[in-house]
């Protein structure tokens, strides 16, 4: 078996807040293989974005990051010198952010910002950088790429800016791309195009892709594997097909029931909802974090829940003995 491009074990992120310490990410373990798309899915505040920022070393300065290990292509990011980390960032691992409107520097041209990582990481001279920028802009579907290079971010629409961000991430031919909800801020019609593009590029360049999203519909379409996060933990992970067909965690089941599926969801029949609220992550949490909202919760759920491993890398954090059935009243 080859080394995974990203291998994170027991990652934790703690943020000091006014009334204690926020355990925003707890015991997160995940791997991304070369040429594989891993989707990290969960609702807002579950720690999925922080997980991707932790990998890149871009957490806010007040946050504390710990892990058993966090390897990028076998090299541990935890005890890496800042210099080595800079060599990797934007070069072999790149990130695409959620807010295309504000993630580009308003004071510099698109061309300058695109060629910057290429030149900084010594991939070639200015001429080659410009050629690659034009090639990638065209590849991400931007017409008149040459003209775009001299434009400023404010002259481009949100969709175009996100394509620029994608092209920027690809400039140095990375082994891993982390995309943090790259389509959330965009129009629905453009969302699909951008996702398609990402999936396509991931295949074409054989990169690992870690895609953070709250939309299970996206996961179903592009992910090879999926990690479901809840309250800072990965509650279930495994191949997309397995997780969708036989979810072992009630939260995963709840999320799947929320997806509108054309054949199944009929007018007048309600989609699934998950009752209750996410528990506060300030201080510690004993036992299963989902038990307050879980229809199957029993007394042992208040004690620490071990991770159970099944076939094909399928793992879950629940004591239920079998796959969780759909709770919808009229399953198709």
């Amino acid at each position: 078996m080859t080394t995974p491009v990203l291998d994170v074990k027991q990652l934790a992120v703690q943020i000091p807040v006014a009334d204690g310490i926020l355990h925003a990410v707890r015991d997160v373990t995940l791997t991304v293989a070369r040429g594989e798309t891993l989707c990290v899915v969960g609702e807002s505040g579950c720690g999925k974005s922080l997980t991707s920022l932790a990998v890149m070393g871009l957490l806010p300065s007040s946050a504390r990051r710990t892990a058993a290990h966090m390897r990028f292509a076998g090299e541990d990011l935890l005890d890496m010198t800042p210099r080595r980390l800079r060599e990797l960032r934007g070069n072999r691992m790149a990130m695409i952010f959620q807010e295309p409107m504000t993630s580009l520097n308003p004071a510099w041209t698109i061309g300058d910002q695109l060629t910057e990582p290429f030149l900084r990481h010594g991939k070639g001279n200015r001429r080659e950088a410009t050629d690659r920028a034009v090639f990638l802009l065209e590849r991400v579907g931007i017409a008149a790429a040459g003209r775009r290079l001299v434009q400023y971010p404010h002259e481009l629409s949100g969709g175009l800016r996100q394509r620029v961000m994608i092209a920027m991430a690809l400039m140095c031919g990375p082994d891993l791309i982390l995309a943090d909800e790259p389509t959330t801020a965009l129009d629905v019609t453009i969302q699909a195009e951008i996702l398609h593009l990402l999936a396509e590029l991931q295949q074409e360049f054989g990169m690992g892709l870690l895609l953070v999203t709250h939309d299970l519909g996206i996961v179903a379409r592009v992910a090879h594997r999926v990690a479901v996060m809840y309250a800072g933990e990965v509650v279930e992970s495994g191949p997309t097909v397995t997780v969708f067909d036989e979810p072992r965690h009630p939260y995963t089941r709840g999320l799947i029931d929320c997806i509108p599926i054309p054949a199944r969801s009929r007018p007048g029949v309600p989609l699934g909802t998950i009752p209750g609220l996410v528990p506060s992550l300030v201080g510690g949490i004993e036992g299963c974090a989902f038990r307050e909202r879980c229809a199957f919760a029993t007394e042992p759920c208040a004690r620490p829940v071990p991770v159970v491993t099944g076939a094909e890398d399928h793992a879950w954090r629940c004591i239920l003995p079998a796959a969780v059935p759909s709770l919808l009243e009229n399953p198709a």
Partner: peptide, 26 residues
């Protein structure tokens, strides 16, 4: 604290370039 400074860091730029080129210019 702006997003484009985070982008500049994500590109692997040294702190000096992030501060003087990307932040100070604005």
């Amino acid at each position: 604290t702006s997003d484009y400074i985070r982008t500049a860091r994500a590109k692997g730029l040294p702190g000096r370039v992030v501060v003087l080129k990307h932040a100070l210019r604005n």
